[in-house]
Design a protein around this nucleic acid. Structure first.
Lengths: 161, 161
RNA sequence: GGACACCGGGUUAC
DNA sequence: GTAACCCGGTGTCC
């Protein structure tokens, strides 16, 4: 529980899972309104995707579930360094370098740009803080997200999506 | 499978690797006699070299492994544009300009001239065709050469060379 | 400005 | 072991 958490109105826990990478994937998010302690849970799946795309989707759909009528103070909590470092550090360079992975003109393109652009726009609509937690280390909400994401894959495979 | 391949008697696949660039390096070549389907594999290493020198060495040693009693139709297949374009396009200009990278007398010198001269002489002894393949894109012999070159470095590091 | 290679490091998922 | 992703670099040429 860092200082950043104390100020947040909304805690957004996210996780993604992928059975095969690439393969069937699921994502999940838990939104907690700190003051009221109300919680919302959402999850979804895709037939063929990657682990990183599911981590991004969890954050995107989580942010989409927040009312955009005004800016909220949101703390995004994920076990994905890809998501957290991407949003807090790497994305500035990507934008500066026209979504390439480096300054050289023939540097390879950043992947999953579609999701990164969407996530970036959504993050700009609120006052965001970020926290990286280690996966599978007893973090309650993170583990619940993990279970939900895995369940979403299972539903997909059973055709119950 | 271009026309050029159909005519070749010998397919020569090559690759180089370098752990650090510059650093310990390895090279490898697979020679396939098309008619008999017989194969020969060779590899080697150097304690301190560069990626491009190893790519050149792979081609040099590959050509050296071909019997020079008469001219053979050889197709050299490499993922190094440095090697393929060097041999098919650039080297004419280098020779014309006394191994300089341009026509001006103060143009910078071509690097690795020792290897380029050796490779050029060897290539003149046969009827060569050339093919560039993308690295790490599922090309069987190229990937096998890659493994052999990396293994050569490993042997070197273990002192088993 | 362009291209092909060669690495070093880190995280996750199978 | 392989695959999805990111950061940082050099070797070489046009």
């Amino acid at each position: 529980m860092g200082k950043s958490n104390l100020a947040a109105e909304i805690l957004l826990f996210t996780d993604g899972a992928c059975s095969g990478n690439p393969g069937p994937g699921g994502w999940a998010a838990i939104l907690r309104h700190v003051e009221s302690d109300k919680e919302k849970k959402i999850s979804g799946s895709e037939a063929r995707t990657t682990n990183n795309r599911m981590e991004l989707m969890a954050a995107i759909e989580g942010l989409r579930a927040i009312n955009a009528d005004r800016r909220h103070r949101v703390c995004l909590i994920s076990d994905s360094q890809y998501v957290i470092f991407g949003l807090t550090q790497w994305i500035k360079g990507w934008i500066a370098n026209d979504w390439r992975r480096g300054k050289k003109s023939n540097a390879p393109p950043v992947l999953n740009v579609d999701l990164w652009k969407t996530l970036y726009e959504l993050s700009q609509q609120h006052d965001m803080t970020y926290e990286h937690v280690r996966g599978h280390s007893g973090h309650l909400e993170n583990e619940e997200c993990d279970r939900m994401a895995v369940a979403a894959i299972k539903d997909l495979k059973r055709g119950n999506d």
